[in-house]
Amino acid sequence: MTGARRHAQASAGSGVHRFRVRTVVFDLDGTLADAVPDIADAVDVMLKALSRPTLDVAQVRSMLGDGVHELVKRALTATGGVTEPIFTEGFARFVGQYEAHLADRSRPWPGVEEALSALEADGVQLAICTNKLDYLTRPFLDAMGWKGRFPSVVCGDTLDVRKPDPAPLLEAIRRTGVGPAAFVGDTVVDLTTARAARVPCLLMHLDEGAIVPAGADPGQVLTSFAELPDALAAL
């Protein structure tokens, strides 16, 4: 058992909380798990089926954050343009491939389990706010071993709007029933969402190919999940 987890358990048992925040909301892809390999594979299958040039992983990564519809539009725009019929076919091919292989190569980031356990031991509520569609999010959570781990899950199609609109984040917090809250993400979309919702935000910078969101304060950016409990405790 890690020192952080022992401390959290002792704090919870004594009634003195280590974390002032009582709900922590996480983005999913790129934040809790490295999902890029399977997403990039699905983009590759889609583009080949449409006789388009393929994109490398770095290009696909740069297109993420605004949900699957925007990803497909961006991939098609970058490889020859997009019309409504092309988008419809491309979207169907992408989703068909990704739904069948959404966790072939995706993995939780190192240290995630220890960080989540430290929060749970202190009685902190865990939630998800993602732009991933619900029917892709639920099986992905199951595949990562997180079935039932997050009582509050708000997806890209849960409401009529998605991030960076603050409503999904606020809804994820509302569903836990406790506050104050913090948001942990990895992209400029997450940072913008948190600022609009007036919720403290930490950003995970775990993928060497990812770009630190413009406008992020250095103190907001973490390079490992081992840093997360102390960073949350400082909020």
Rank of each mutant, 00 (worst) to 15 (best):
T2P: 01
T2C: 09
R5D: 15
H7M: 14
A8T: 10
A10M: 13
A10E: 14
S11C: 15
S11Q: 14
A12F: 13
S14F: 07
V16W: 11
R18A: 11
R18L: 13
V21C: 11
V21Y: 03
T23P: 08
V25Q: 04
L28C: 07
T31S: 03
L32A: 07
A33Y: 09
A33E: 01
A33T: 11
D34E: 13
P37G: 02
V43W: 07
V43D: 08
V45W: 11
K48L: 15
L50V: 04
R52Q: 03
D56P: 04
V57H: 12
A58H: 14
S62L: 08
S62E: 09
G67A: 05
G67F: 09
E70W: 12
A75D: 10
T77D: 15
A78I: 09
A78M: 08
T79R: 00
G81T: 06
V82H: 01
I86M: 14
F87K: 01
A92Y: 08
A92R: 12
R93Q: 11
F94Q: 00
V95M: 15
G96W: 07
G96C: 11
E99L: 13
L102S: 13
L102K: 00
A103V: 12
S106G: 08
S106A: 14
S106R: 00
P108K: 00
W109A: 10
P110L: 10
G111W: 06
E113A: 15
E114D: 15
E114Q: 14
A115Y: 06
L116Q: 09
A118T: 14
L119V: 06
E120C: 11
G123T: 06
G123E: 05
Q125H: 11
A127L: 10
I128W: 03
I128E: 04
K132E: 05
D134M: 13
D134A: 15
Y135P: 12
Y135T: 15
L141I: 02
M144F: 07
G145A: 04
V153C: 03
C155V: 06
G156L: 05
D157G: 07
L159M: 00
L159E: 04
L159W: 02
D160L: 13
D160V: 13
P164M: 05
A167I: 07
A167L: 12
P168T: 10
P168E: 02
L170K: 10
E171F: 00
V178Y: 04
P180N: 06
A181M: 07
A182M: 01
F183T: 01
V184N: 03
G185L: 08
G185T: 09
D186L: 00
V188T: 14
L191P: 09
A196D: 02
C201W: 02
C201D: 05
C201K: 00
L202M: 08
M204T: 00
M204F: 00
H205C: 06
P213N: 07
G219D: 14
G219W: 06
G219C: 04
L222V: 10
L222T: 05
E227V: 09
P229W: 01
A231E: 05
L232Q: 04
L232W: 02
L232T: 05
A233C: 07
A234R: 03
L235I: 15
